[in-house]
Design a protein around this nucleic acid. Structure first.
Lengths: 221, 221
DNA sequence: CTTCAACCGGAGCACTTGCTCCACTAGGCT
DNA sequence: AGCCTAGTGGAGCAAGTGCTCCGGTTGAAG
């Protein structure tokens, strides 16, 4: 039944809250308690996903949000739907905070470094977010890191024009570097942040070494 | 029964093969077919672990080695026992090949670079090995990467004495870098090896940048 | 206040996965 | 050759997990 509704493009997710239910909207309204529960589920899910990654037990999310399994699956017909909704929100937060850090700095080189620092500090402890971001490289079908990559592209352009970044570095290089460093942050104990900061320092230095060896390109081998 | 035997320090694993059963050894001998099966299990497990990581289904290992579940669990009383045995072997291979690559090169700097290159080429596609190596940082109880770290330590010493490696780089920095790069290799598609090679190049360059910013230390914050 | 559809909760189903049990087989000693 | 026991295989158990079903509840329209 729910399946049929979703196939018809009339998923429960498209129901709107009372506040945003303008006269022109044909969508149904969600009841107040349903709205509250939905928010509670998303909030709880975000916490559990941050701690345990994508392999969480759905029961735990339901329990922590004070809601039954039926309620949870009424709002999100699939575990993947729930993860998608929550992670989209988390990615948006991650992106906006990183953009803020990057644009607040004048110097192109400092902006690039500030971007990495903030991106790693803010969200790299969110296990599920990092899992998703890294999966993009194996299975490039998803698009979850797109806005983040766009920021990286701007930063790269500015820094290279200012001569503060090796000209042969690509946006992909930087995006992949962010993925690798995110995993490094997750590997290191929370009480020893200097471990990953040293890695970051080494990588940033390597990004502008003057008499460096040329980077390998596709044609090698 | 098997449990009791293991607690007494008389595990089935301690049974020796006919060949190595010297007159002085008090151990039992394994039957020829048992020996063959054990080898087949280890071989099959290595393959499956390389492809799928530590989350494999034990049934698949049994099936691929042409052996029943009972046989598998007779040789390895626990999945973890099997993983331990197999991964120990894989780590030994990884280590010896990396050592060979490192010691075959005269120049200290080149040796360090050759070590990373070979370490990543040889075993970084073995998912389970990388998983284990990286877990060492979260839960430093295990000792699986110990010999590898010892090689890294020697390489660091040589390179720093020759002035070809920043003096503030520690062995931990390099070991963590190897972990991060191993994960990078796994993230990148197999048919695009230049992606991770470029990362490696950047990191290696960063390891000897001359006017680099000082590395963060424990006291920061 | 009444009414009722939207909503709720959680027991339970289906499937996966680590591991066990036991009837049966066959290697190796005499 | 015959015996004995180490060894074998796979059905099945128990626990975990994604998801469903349905009787009971409640927000909100009239």
């Amino acid at each position: 039944m729910e399946q049929v509704l979703r196939l018809k493009g009339e998923s429960y997710d498209e129901v709107v809250t009372r506040a945003e239910h303008s006269a022109t909207s044909p969508k149904r309204v969600r009841r107040a308690d349903a709205e509250r529960n939905r928010a509670a589920i998303i909030e709880a899910a975000a916490g559990v996903l941050a701690e345990q990654g994508c392999t969480v037990d759905v029961r735990e999310i339901a329990q922590r949000s004070g809601v039954g399994m039926g309620t949870l699956y009424r709002h999100f017909p699939t575990k993947e739907d729930l993860l998608g909704t929550v992670l989209e929100r988390e990615f948006a937060t991650w992106t906006s905070e990183a953009r803020q850090a990057a644009t607040a700095t004048e110097d192109p080189r400092a902006a690039l470094e500030e971007f990495f620092e903030q991106a790693l500090v803010n969200q790299a402890h969110h296990r599920a977010v990092v899992e998703r971001y890294c999966e993009n490289w194996r299975h490039p079908a998803q698009t979850c890191g797109q806005p983040l990559v766009r920021i990286i592209d701007e930063l790269r352009e500015r820094a290279q024009r200012a001569g503060k970044l090796r000209p042969d570095i690509t946006t992909d290089d930087l995006a992949l570097l962010l993925a690798a460093l995110s995993q490094t942050v997750q590997m290191t104990p929370v009480d020893k942040p200097w471990l990953w900061r040293r890695q970051l320092r080494v990588c940033l230095d390597g990004l502008n070494c003057e008499h460096a060896a040329p980077l390998p390109v596709a044609e090698r081998h």
